[in-house]
């Protein structure tokens, strides 16, 4: 298929620029292959993250021709070859180097979410019973590979630009500081909370967290997150909207939460929840 020009952003915290590289493109090749080829032959210090090369680990997120993508799942034959292929790091997160960004903020948000706590076992042998239909909807959320592409495009997160960045000693080096940095949890953590809140066995109430710390109210359902999700998770329709409803319910009627948790434990689907969008 011949040579193609790749215009790759190179630089670090202090700034950078686009550099052009040529790479030989062959059948079935993905963008990550080209980056590796360039690394091996022309720019050994070109930084990028990857692990699985099969869309399973969520490491290789970047922006390809302006679109947030997994580089390992972006086939070259879906891109025009007569103009340079533009590769940039995710825009929302602080740069470390080249295509590598500091996503540590996400791990800090995750740690705030109280862990799963199951109801007592259903059977004497210490196990539980759940139907496949009951787990289908949270299995959708649990497909998340933590590529953080949804976080990258969410305008609430982009506008606030408040991902605190820490150095390896844990000192904050940029961003506005942990308290402000965590103004909005972002779509990834909304569906993580959803996967816990809608877990048939779980007993913890995370609605106050959603409302006060993760500030679910700031999401105005633009669905940009859903559009970029490589796992095709219906982040907004199946995750955020039902959670927003629950938060509202709880605000007006705290007994609702308790009633719902019991209902879920008994396998009763909530009256007000929206129909699940099938993948």
């Amino acid at each position: 298929m011949g040579k193609v020009t790749f215009r790759i952003w190179r630089g670090d915290k202090s700034g950078g620029s686009f550099n052009d590289y040529q790479a030989e493109v062959s059948e079935g090749m993905v963008v990550l292959d080209a980056v590796h080829q360039i690394q091996a032959t022309q720019a050994p210090d070109l930084a990028c993250r990857w692990n699985c090369k099969a869309g399973k680990c969520g490491s290789c997120s970047a922006e390809v021709n302006g679109k947030p993508r997994l580089m390992c799942m972006t086939r070259m034959d879906t891109l025009p070859h007569d103009q340079p292929v533009l590769i940039q790091p995710m825009k929302a997160f602080p740069i470390i180097r080249d295509l590598v960004t500091d996503v540590s903020w996400n791990y800090r948000v995750n740690k705030k979410i109280p862990p799963f706590k199951p109801r007592p076992p259903d059977a004497p042998d210490g196990t539980w019973r759940m139907g496949q239909e009951e787990v289908d909807r949270i299995q959708e959320f649990r497909k998340c590979i933590e590529c953080f592409l949804c976080q990258n495009v969410c305008h609430v997160l982009r506008d606030h630009r408040r991902f605190g960045q820490t150095d390896t000693d844990g000192n904050l080096t940029s961003g506005k500081g942990p308290s402000e940095a965590e103004l909005f949890g972002g779509p990834r953590f909304m569906i993580r909370v959803a996967s816990l809140e809608m877990h048939p066995l779980d007993t913890v109430n995370r609605l106050p967290l959603l409302q006060k710390e993760l500030n679910i109210g700031l999401c105005n359902i633009t669905k940009c997150c859903t559009e970029v999700c490589p796992e095709h998770i219906h982040i907004t329709d199946n995750g955020i909207i039902p959670l927003k409803e629950r938060v509202v319910d709880e605000f007006y009627d705290p007994l609702m939460w308790a009633a719902r948790k019991v209902g879920e434990a008994l396998g009763i689907r909530r009256r007000k929840s929206l129909p699940i969008v099938k993948p």
Partner: peptide, 10 residues
């Protein structure tokens, strides 16, 4: 490995 110590795959 040309380059510096920051995230240098080479």
């Amino acid at each position: 490995a040309p380059g510096n110590r920051e995230y240098n795959p080479g």
